[in-house]
Write a protein that binds this DNA or RNA. Structure first.
Lengths: 191, 191
DNA sequence: TAATTAATTAGATGGCTATCTAGATGATTA
DNA sequence: TAATCATCTAGATAGCCATCTAATTAATTA
């Protein structure tokens, strides 16, 4: 399923940011960007213990940001710029970022919350004054009109009357939000 | 001083990565990238409490990743793509990244550590076999030759003899590391 | 073969922070 | 004016993680 792929991408991004969000690791990245270096050397440069640096390096290696090669009995670590570039590309495309998130978020949660308050059981209790809430209710109303079909104003009023007495306001808002369009007193659903 | 500027840049980068290195905040970024949203709406979408989302938003605002505008009594937050772009630019330039780090790292720390072991008091105790350590010692030796001046092989040997008996090995390594160059038995310091 | 050195693993600890609830603030509506 | 609603602040808590020391593994040198 597609959502799975997005969740993967979200995790990848998160992993990347967590890897970079530590002062020691960020410095390590900068240092191995200059030239490949051993654990020992990095430890001396950063004023950290060997195990700590080793820990950070294995973290960075797991994420794919550095790679190690053996030399004598040293492990020489160097930067993998391809990974850095690939990640940055995903961040820059806010569309990708949005989509990655969308897969793991219930985009209707807010609408449901609003509906539970204003339309608890099929009828509109009262019309929201808050723009965002009004939009949710009006969008729900719009789903009761078939796309492609043409309605007289009288037909529109009758349909709306099923949900709330003030059909005139509702009709006007449907037009305001560009969910219904009209010409010569004939209405139809937009989109 | 320049180092100050680099430290600033390092902090900026760290701040940015920390801001993005949290699942909730990353999702918020993705959601406001789609469209501006209120605290309330984000809380519903993410399944988090209002205060928690408010906390994250003020964090993101401090870092400059989102901005708020008041509407009715909502705070509507939206993404500041300029900040995102500016940050990404700095990450992509590994040179900048290196320089940012360099300002806050003692680049001679490793050399000092090696010197303390192999050249504790001005004389070379014994010649390192490890390449990286050998390099440190040989680079130090090279500083005892004046740039631009020409030395006979005999003169080179005499100088080296002050630091260790095996002047022949030292002379060879100086050439290997391209710190000294030679022609017709005349030596001079490179760079 | 014994000794040295680099790297890693294991386990412990202290500090940081994402989250919550409760309460305060400030704007809007009736 | 009273009531409602979104937001923010304060303070508490629980879980995560950067770091250390000690011990282990592995490679190299003498």
């Amino acid at each position: 399923m597609e959502a799975e792929l997005h969740r993967d991408k979200l995790d990848k991004l998160l992993e990347f940011f967590k890897a970079m969000a530590d002062e020691s690791r960020l410095k390590i990245i900068g240092l191995v960007a200059q030239q490949p270096r051993s654990v020992d050397e990095l430890a001396a440069l950063l004023g950290l213990s060997g195990p700590t640096v080793s820990h950070h390096l294995s973290y960075l290696q797991r994420v794919g940001l550095v790679e190690a090669r053996a030399q004598q009995y040293y492990s020489i670590y160097s930067l993998r710029t391809e990974t850095l570039h690939a990640m940055v590309k995903d961040i820059l495309s806010t569309k990708k970022l949005s989509r990655a998130v969308t897969g793991d978020v219930d985009l209707d949660a807010y609408a449901r919350k609003v509906m539970a308050v204003y339309v608890p059981d099929g009828k509109i209790e009262h019309i929201p004054t808050q723009l965002k809430k009004l939009e949710v209710v009006v969008r729900w109303l719009a789903t009761h009109f078939e796309p492609g079909r043409r309605y007289t104003e009288k037909q529109v009023n009758e349909i709306l009357l099923e949900y709330h007495e003030d059909f005139a306001t509702l009709r006007r808002e449907l037009v305001n939000f560009h969910l219904l369009d009209r010409k010569n007193n004939i209405y139809w659903r937009v989109k």
